[in-house]
Amino acid sequence: MPVSLSIKSLTVEFTSGGYKIRPLNGFSCDGDDGQLMVLLGPSGCGKTTLLSCLAGLLTPTSGSIHFNDEEITGLRGRALATYRRHTVGVVFQAFNLIPSLSARSNVMVPLRLAGASRKAARERATTLLAQVGLSERANYRPGQLSGGQQQRAAIARALVHDPPLVLADEPTAHLDYVQVEGVLRLLRDLARPGRMVVVATHDERITQLADKVVELTPHLPAEQREPREVTLGEGQFVFRQGDPSDLVYVVQSGEVEILREMGDGAEEHVTVIGPGGYFGELGPMLNLPRSASARALSATVLTGCSVQEFRSQRPGHLGQAAAQS
C-alpha cells in the first residue's frame, strides 16, 4: 500500500534552561511513497524535534502531521502506542541498543513488548539480523560490536514490525567511512514502495542518495539587498525569540530593548540599544533563529540590512560579534 506524509504548520515550543525555545516554527513539508527524505540542517535547527513528532514521542504545540491520512498529532493512549509499535521504526543517533542484551535480544525487544512469543520473536530477529548482515554477531552484546554493526542491529530493531515509516537520526554520526557506506546502502534499500525513510542529518553528503532534501534552516540569499527603513511605535516588536533571522538592525532614533522570553511568560531584560547601536547580527550570520526578542521602547526608526550590506558599512564590527542575535 502506497504511503504518504504531510506535515502542516508544525510548531514545537518548550522551555529549556528557563527560556522559551521554538525549534520548529510553522514547518511544513510532504513526503511520497518509497522516498528517502533527508532533513538537512545544523545542530539545534529542529531535526530531532521533528523526528520525535513523527515517531509519536513528542506532541507539537500546533500544526499537524498526517501519515497515510491518519493524523498522528491527534493520536492518544492506545492508538498512539499502536502507531509507535507498528507504523514507525526508529534508528537512534547513538544506536541506543540495550547494553546488557545481545544484538538478537535487542531486536527481539519490540516484538516481546508487543506480546510476541519468545520463539516467534527470536525467529524474526534472526531473519532481520541476516538481512542486515549481522548473523554471525547476533549473540554479541553492543559493547562487543563496532559502530557500524551496532547501527545495523539498530536498523534491524527498527524493522521488526515491518513499519511503513522508518526514521533515522544522524545515522552516520558515529561511523567511519567504511561503516557509513554499509549503513547508507541499507537505508537506501529500505526506501521502496510501501515505505518511506526519513533521515535527519547535518552531513550534506547524504543528500546525494536522497529522493527529497528538506533544509530545516534555509540558506538566506547571498546577494546583497538594499537596506530598508523600519518604523516602530512604543512596545512594538522588531522580532520575537525563535523567529527566523534575516536582517541586522541599526538604530537610527529611539531605543530598542533586547529581552529574553522565559518559559513561565516572564521577560528577562538583556540590554537597551540606542541610536547608532546595532543588534541581531549573529542570527543571520549563523543561520540560527533569534535567541532573544527586540522591542521598541519608544517611537523608533531602524535600518534593516543584510549581513553583507552591514559588513560593507561597518567593516570589522561582525568580527567582534558580541551583541545579541
Binding site: L57, R84, P99, L113
Partner: peptide
C-alpha cells in the same frame, strides 16, 4: 535513564 527512554519509545509502559 537512556535505556528506559528507549524502552518506552519501543513500546514499554512505565509500570513494566
Amino acid at each position: 535513564v537512556r535505556d528506559f527512554a528507549v524502552l518506552k519509545a519501543l513500546g514499554s509502559s512505565s509500570l513494566a
